[in-house]
Write a protein that binds this DNA or RNA. Structure first.
Lengths: 211, 211
DNA sequence: ACAAAAGTGTTCCATATACACCCATGT
DNA sequence: ACATGGGTGTATATGGAACACTTTTGT
């Protein structure tokens, strides 16, 4: 029974300034010391792989109870110069209003727009692309979009989320009709002064959907 | 750096007698000796996880170059009574015309309809359900259906594939129009006497798509 | 002759798309 | 007053769903 190293890596997305952004951490240790990499680390002996992903995310960002979904497992024997390390990749989504607490190890973490990433360690570039694709597809048949917004949001903010993920502009009237007619959002009757004219806040159908 | 056991398991589907069927192998060794399980085994030290899946499938069935896609990684620490073993699950599709060669280890292999499986070893029941769902979904936006047919097939045979995967009957005229109008199949002008009236054989768009 | 599977069109409905103006407020 | 983002309706095109009969052959 051969044994292998097993890690998890997390692509943590948010939307800021109408751009998809993701969190990278500057590596302190070899290999790839000084390079940016995805948050992640080794799976411990007695935890599930899913739990390892949640733990690493918590340790490196302070985030709990975020949307976290397994992506794909990358198992090329040469993906890690230390030797055989298989990684199970996840992606996570948070609202830009959620703040991060610095990790216990004071490594340097920073947000980067997906369209302007530095050179990444390991095969993390490939993982990011895989995650970005998954997110785009998933937007079409699920409600993942809401995970990138706070509990209450304007319809324009929701549209910006969709436009940013899809990389194309959408017609305002068609978008609003589709969203409101499916009953997926409920008006809160609260109003915010975001631009000039106040906008109504909406919330996701049944409360907060696991946030 | 903790190390864990790593296996691959393969859900090999085919369609026979208008039923989804999958291949199971009776385990000889402990744990779960005597129980049926999915074909699979340990990932070797220097092979990629994908290669391990292809190798196990070849060793246990003689099949090469079949459609093989990674599904999901199951990492509950209690899923294997021997201790920590994470498995990367795959699913594979073959035409019912493709014959299997018995594996080198003369273990007992048999086809079972998905709707009448025996009790399975490990968490393999969960893996099968995951694979079955993936296949159903994937049929809607890809051409996986063709992987369950020989290179040349009648439109009725293709419809049976779709009906069997979806578990519902489809309208013949709507189905044929959709298939032929997208140009996804080409008529071969060969005819087979399957029922009473001869039926035309079609083939998938560009040759054999990796079979 | 009859049973069995092959083959073939049209209508309707739902959903997606294209498109432009007025409104409330802050500066 | 004007600039900014919020909010609203209609017409057309497209894709999916419902629906029944004729044809060819083997028995």
């Amino acid at each position: 029974m051969t044994k292998t190293g097993l890690t998890v890596d997390i692509v943590l997305f948010t939307i800021r300034d109408r751009q998809m952004q993701l969190l990278l951490i500057k590596r302190l240790a070899k290999p790839f010391a000084g390079r940016y990499a995805l948050p992640g680390g080794f799976v411990l002996a007695h935890e599930s792989v899913d739990a390892a992903a949640a733990r690493e995310l918590r340790e490196e960002t302070g985030l709990e109870k975020v949307y976290l979904e397994q992506l794909y497992t990358f198992g090329d024997p040469r993906r890690d110069p230390r030797g055989r390390v298989v990684t199970v990749a996840y992606y996570a989504l948070i609202a830009p209003t959620q703040m991060l607490h610095a990790g216990t190890d004071a490594s340097e973490a920073a947000w980067f727009p997906v369209s302007g990433l530095p050179t990444l360690a390991f095969d993390h570039r490939k993982i990011v692309e895989y995650a970005h694709n998954r997110l785009r597809n998933k937007l079409g048949y699920t409600n993942v979009g809401f995970e990138l917004l706070p509990a209450k949001f304007t319809l324009t903010a929701l549209q910006v989320v969709h436009e940013t993920i899809l990389g194309e502009t959408l017609d305002k009237r068609n978008f609003r009709r589709k969203i409101t007619q499916t009953g997926i959002v409920k008006p809160t009757h609260e109003w915010v002064k975001t631009g000039r004219k106040p906008a109504q806040l909406y919330k996701f159908r049944d409360g907060e959907v696991g946030r």
